[in-house]
């Protein structure tokens, strides 16, 4: 088991270094001066230029430059934003929590609704309902997220005027940023209107979170249904039935835990697509997160912002997917068996 974890961590390190290499090569290909693309300082004074040459080893061989690049990036120095002339790392820590908040709530919605619906679809004998759920999930899987977001915005935000359509909170509320997660910050703040601000933040969150939740919801529903249908045909379920256990006990003790293992795996595989969708959703609903920040960065050719955004999101995805894979192996004895057999 430990050997397996060790191998996974090795894979994580190798992938991260490759990712940094890809980014480093791309940085060299940007249609601007290399020191500008690396540091974000457009017209450096002679001193600054010397400083940049020194930190990024620009006079040295490509290999040394790459090592210096890794050192700078991993120590949290992303240069300054070309556009705002502020440290990119500071901006990143401001936008990252907002994105995580959105992604977390969307994921929660997807699992909270997807798993029960999948269970229902697997257990129901009604063919019409089964077909209906399949059709809904397939449509949800195929719908372009930007169109869905715009339609929801137009319908619930403009025509019905139920929900706010852009941003994280009404600008009237002045909330100090503690964690960066608006739902927590509003509750933490000692202002008299903190609960009203919390409600406002929740209302702002609904539309983007629901839009983003559609894709993982459909995938979770489909996989749960498939896995549970498989599991319920296994002989150990029949054995449990023969022992006279009730349906709910069989389902929750024997069926669902086994059915959720492939769901976990599919969540790990979905992360990349989920991040892409998250970027689009953030742009549509003007959510002040990484996606919005990155897209405005590319419009303004803010090369330091682009590097930092891609690096942070990709590293997050790599570590999360490897974590999920390890979790999958830890809770699933079957995949552990394969592991030992392959040695």
């Amino acid at each position: 088991m430990w050997q397996y974890f060790f191998r996974r961590i090795n894979l994580f390190l190798a992938t991260s270094i490759l990712l940094l290499l890809v980014l480093y090569i791309a940085t060299g290909l940007f249609p601007v001066d290399k020191s500008f693309a690396l540091s974000g300082i457009a017209t450096p004074s002679t001193e600054q230029q010397l400083q940049i040459n020194q930190t990024y080893q620009l006079q040295q061989s490509a290999f040394k430059q790459f090592i210096a690049y890794i050192q700078q990036r991993l120590s949290g120095d992303f240069g300054v934003s070309i556009n705002s002339q502020q440290a990119v790392a500071g901006e990143l820590t401001r936008v990252l929590p907002a994105s995580l908040e959105l992604a977390f709530v969307a994921g929660l919605i997807a699992i909270a609704f997807g798993v029960p619906l999948g269970v229902f679809a697997a257990l129901t004998q009604n063919v019409f309902l089964q077909r209906l759920i399949l059709a809904i999930t397939l449509t949800g899987y195929s719908v372009p997220v930007f169109w869905l977001g715009l339609s929801l915005l137009l319908w619930f935000g403009v025509n019905l005027n139920w929900l706010p359509t852009s941003g994280q909170i009404n600008l009237l509320y002045d909330i100090d940023s503690v964690t960066g997660v608006m739902l927590i910050d509003t509750l933490l703040s000692a202002k008299p209107y903190s609960f009203a601000a919390f409600q406002d933040a929740v209302l702002h969150l609904i539309l983007p979170a629901v839009t983003l939740a559609v894709l993982p919801f459909t995938i979770v529903t489909r996989i749960t249904r498939q896995a549970l249908t498989n599991v319920m045909e296994q002989s150990y379920i029949r054995a449990a039935e023969a022992r006279g256990l009730g349906t709910s006990k069989i389902l929750f003790r024997h069926g669902l835990p086994n059915a959720l293992v492939p769901v976990l795996k599919s969540i790990g595989l979905m992360l990349g697509t989920f991040a892409s969708y998250g970027i689009v959703v953030e742009v549509i609903f003007s959510w002040p997160g990484v996606g919005n920040w990155l897209i405005s960065g590319i419009y303004q050719r803010d090369y330091t912002v682009i590097q930092a955004g891609i690096l942070s999101v990709s590293l997050l995805i790599i570590s999360l997917s490897i974590f999920i894979e390890m979790l999958h192996t830890a809770i699933n004895p079957v995949s552990r068996k394969e592991l030992y057999a392959s040695k």
């Binding site: 290909l29 940007f30 249609p31 990349g272 689009v280 050719r301 990709s314």
Partner: peptide
């Protein structure tokens, strides 16, 4: 087999942003 796994972890949209930047 794993050489391209690093590319796999970059979401397609971010990859596109990188290409557009270049």
């Amino acid at each position: 087999g794993h050489l391209f796994d690093a590319l796999l972890s970059i979401p397609s949209l971010l990859m596109a942003i990188l290409v557009v930047a270049v």
